[in-house]
Design a protein around this nucleic acid. Sequence first.
DNA 1: AATCAGCATTAACCTGGGTTAACACCGATG
DNA 2: CATCGGTGTTAACCCAGGTTAATGCTGATT
Lengths: 178, 178
Amino acid sequence: MKIKDLVKQHGSLVSYAKGEHVFRQGDNDEFLYFIQSGFLKAYYLSMDGKEQVKSFLSPNSVIGSLLSCYSKQHCSFSLLCLEQASLVKIPFDLLHNLSQQDITLANELQHYLLMLAMKKEKREYELLCLPAEQRYRQLQAEMPELFNQVTQKDIAHYLGITNVALSRIKKRLHANIP
Amino acid sequence: MKIKDLVKQHGSLVSYAKGEHVFRQGDNDEFLYFIQSGFLKAYYLSMDGKEQVKSFLSPNSVIGSLLSCYSKQHCSFSLLCLEQASLVKIPFDLLHNLSQQDITLANELQHYLLMLAMKKEKREYELLCLPAEQRYRQLQAEMPELFNQVTQKDIAHYLGITNVALSRIKKRLHANIP
DNA sequence: AATCAGCATTAACCTGGGTTAACACCGATG
DNA sequence: CATCGGTGTTAACCCAGGTTAATGCTGATT
């Protein structure tokens, strides 16, 4: 069986308006979400109430809190719709259990996990090794569309800085390339 | 088949002296390493020559560059022995290919990947949301042994700061708890 | 049209951490 | 024993980014 078929058979379609949460940090939410349409942001709230963006989600991507799905802990982040969105959700355990017997499913899931792990390693490198300005330039090069879809505040929070700092960086850069 | 058996059958034992590299950033190294004894550090070198520590490895942990193993790109980090170490290595492709047919192997690998993904999400959260001082206190709480095994410089580079900054943080903290 | 909320920009000020360098300490090596 | 390299501490200086706040813009609501 393919994940696509599983999603078709057992998935339930859910829709959210702009500004609605799919789940919130602290919830127990043991679903995987396959994004059909819309644009979402996954974000953390730190103890002092500041927001940091974990990732942006566009159609065809998959998301879910592995901590909640696999470890039965609370979600460590919130998932918010930046525009009207429709997703298909399936219980993670369903996929996980079926993959215990279904090799096709297991391999497909494995592929997703490997891609995820590589993406996260890249992010770790960037946060650890690159200064904010370079992270900004790299983001611009890799996801130029993003800058039309989200506010500068969210971009900044994705880069790990404040909107004020991002504004300064932009000014610095444009000064050099007149 | 279990991974343990696979490692026993097809693994080759390799030993390194303190200070030796298992592989270096930029290499192609498509092996998974199962650490039998010793203590290692995985680290990044940024373009300006500064070092940042990705993780520390102790016996029973597994490491390898997924980027190199799965994407056939170059390793994005180096693996260095902080003390005499012995590892068992197997080609990643061997495990990956066998897991295409062997459901037990696939599930075990899946479990490793899920654990890895959760660990990386935690690290992302910490780097993004916690100030250096709190990351230090958390590390102290979670891995107290570490402080006897590695230099303060390496701890600092793991936290994403310099040894000088770490020295200051320690001083600040001890001043408050006399 | 008037109001209001959220966003981006800019300035002023502050702080945490980077940089450099001096110094002391220790273990290894000659 | 003397020396040397690596390590940790401390101080002085600097800068990137955080904080706060004022300003202007835009788009939504009434």
